[in-house]
């Protein structure tokens, strides 16, 4: 079924079309949200909220980008806002150590690259982390990232460059080994 037709049926109130739209996009949304949050409960919450908001606002979708990109923009917005709220709440309640940061799951200190890289990605600023995860981990294009984050593709490329530079810097000792 073509995307336009599917959207039309969803707007007409066809429940099977809603389910078809959900089935077509849920994996991609959930993967991105989970990569960003690192927590199953939060990933489920944010994914659910993404689709609820998408169904509510589908009339506002103009078709200028692909539906998957539009859903990605909702998902990333909900996720970043959600993680900020969680972090603020945790900041108020407890003294944080690195392992308790929202979206930064507990990690056992292991000297292997994978573990060190995960910690280094966790420590990136949200904007850099989103671009890095979307591009290098989930394989989004700069066009898709730009549309999702509401920035210019050049900004996406620049942020990816800086994110990688920070990661290289954080893992520089590995290069010397």
């Amino acid at each position: 079924m073509r995307e336009r037709e599917l959207i039309g049926r969803v707007l007409a109130g066809d429940p099977s079309a809603e389910r078809a739209m959900y089935d077509a996009h849920v994996d991609r949304v959930f993967r991105l949200v989970f990569r960003m949050s690192g927590d199953l409960d939060r990933a489920q919450d944010y994914t659910q909220e993404t689709f609820i908001r998408a169904f509510e606002r589908l009339r506002e979708f103009r078709g200028e980008a692909a539906l998957s990109t539009w859903l990605g923009s909702i998902a990333i917005s909900i996720t970043l806002n959600g993680l900020r709220k969680v972090r603020r709440a945790m900041d108020r309640e407890v003294t944080l150590d690195d392992s308790m940061l929202a979206g930064r799951p507990d990690r056992v200190a292991e000297p292997d690259l994978k573990e060190r890289l995960s910690r280094a990605i966790d420590d990136l600023p949200d904007g850099y982390r989103a671009v890095f995860v979307m591009h290098d981990v989930e394989g989004y294009t700069h066009q898709e990232i730009a549309a999702s984050l509401g920035v210019h593709p050049g900004t996406s490329k620049a942020q990816l460059f800086r994110a990688r530079a920070r990661l290289r810097e954080a893992l520089a000792d590995f290069a010397k080994e």
């Binding site: 089935d23 959930f30 489920q44 890289l117 290098d136």
Partner: peptide
């Protein structure tokens, strides 16, 4: 880095 990045927060199966 590129190889290791794919192992960052590996998502479980989608609880669709």
């Amino acid at each position: 880095l590129h190889d290791a990045a794919r192992g960052y927060n590996p998502p479980p199966e989608t609880p669709r």
